[in-house]
């Protein structure tokens, strides 16, 4: 593995020392279901009622409530959470965009989450999405020991997920570190990610040049993954249109995440690696300060 990547991992590992996993809150340790999830699930701890929707498990209909109110309602129980964190790193080429700190931020944040998981007594596994979603060699050890991480994939996470279903741990926490810059419906990716997960965190890592479009002039844009080129004249109007498109793209992902109970936040790589202040992740309750 690239030595600079190992240095990034060490930076993140050091930065993650003062953080823990923020959600779900810790109830017990050492057993499956020792952590309470924030969403309804299959545990025995009652959480709430809600109106029956076609397709719900008939066994969960509260017949007593039906007798009292003549309305079909479903009992919701707090989800059971396994104290395990799957750290999924998007290893597409765009994550190592030239003249940006995206790769550094992605590896550093992965190490932060690994360190935070350890701080919260979570086990963790690092995954890299390179054609398929595969375990990082030594991915459950300390980040500095991880091997084989390379940002060389030219297909999106969604395609990689579909090629081979990832072997993430059920009822565990999952965090996806990606720039999310691929075409496709966010739901399809998120559904795979959230399948049998107790919590999903999506951290969008953008470079400063992803946030701010190129300066005015004739620009030949070259896609670092597909190597496609496009000649565009850029002026203020074009810059505004790009920003709108980015905002719309982020809005779609945010909405999909909310619909599936996932938490999404966006960080700018250059700002993150400057001092490794992870306030955005803390505010999003993905991490907590110990």
């Amino acid at each position: 593995m690239n030595e600079s990547y190992r240095r990034y991992l060490l930076e993140g590992q050091n930065a993650g020392i003062r953080y823990g996993i923020g959600c779900p809150r810790t109830v017990q340790r050492g057993l499956v279901g020792s952590h309470l999830g924030n969403r309804s699930g299959s545990s025995l701890e009652f959480m709430d009622h809600r109106e029956y929707i076609a397709g719900d498990d008939l066994r969960r209909i509260d017949w007593n409530a039906f007798a009292r109110s003549d309305k079909l309602s479903i009992k919701l129980y707090r989800d059971e959470v396994s104290p395990h964190l799957d750290i999924i790193i998007d290893c597409s080429r765009s994550m190592a965009l030239a003249d940006s700190e995206k790769g550094r931020a992605a590896l550093g944040l992965a190490a932060v989450f690994a360190q935070a998981a350890g701080n919260s007594d979570y086990s963790f596994t690092a995954w890299q999405v390179r054609g398929t979603c595969e375990r990082v060699l030594n991915g459950s050890d300390r980040p500095v020991l991880w091997e084989g991480v390379e940002f060389d994939s030219d297909i999106s996470c969604e395609q990689s997920f579909r090629r081979q279903m990832p072997q993430w741990r059920p009822r565990g926490l999952r965090v996806l570190l990606s720039d999310l810059l691929w075409l496709g419906e966010p739901h399809s990716s998120l559904c795979i990610l959230a399948d049998r997960a107790s919590a999903v965190f999506v951290v969008q890592i953008l470079a400063q040049q992803d946030v701010e479009p190129p300066q005015r002039g004739n620009i030949r844009l070259k896609d670092c993954e597909t190597l496609q080129q496009k000649d565009i004249f850029i002026d203020a109007v074009a810059q505004n249109r790009y920003r709108k498109n980015l905002a719309a793209h982020q809005y779609n992902w945010n909405r999909a995440c909310r619909q599936l109970g996932a938490v999404m936040t966006t960080v700018v790589a250059e700002r993150i690696v400057e001092q490794w202040k992870l306030d955005e992740l803390v505010r999003a309750e993905i991490l907590k300060v110990l």
């Binding site: 810059l181 691929w182 470079a207 992803d210 002039g217 004739n218 896609d223 670092c224």
Partner: peptide, 12 residues
């Protein structure tokens, strides 16, 4: 044209 490598062309 000034060539600039970008993460993706989807936003363009």
């Amino acid at each position: 044209f000034r060539t600039q490598v970008v993460s993706s062309l989807i936003l363009w």
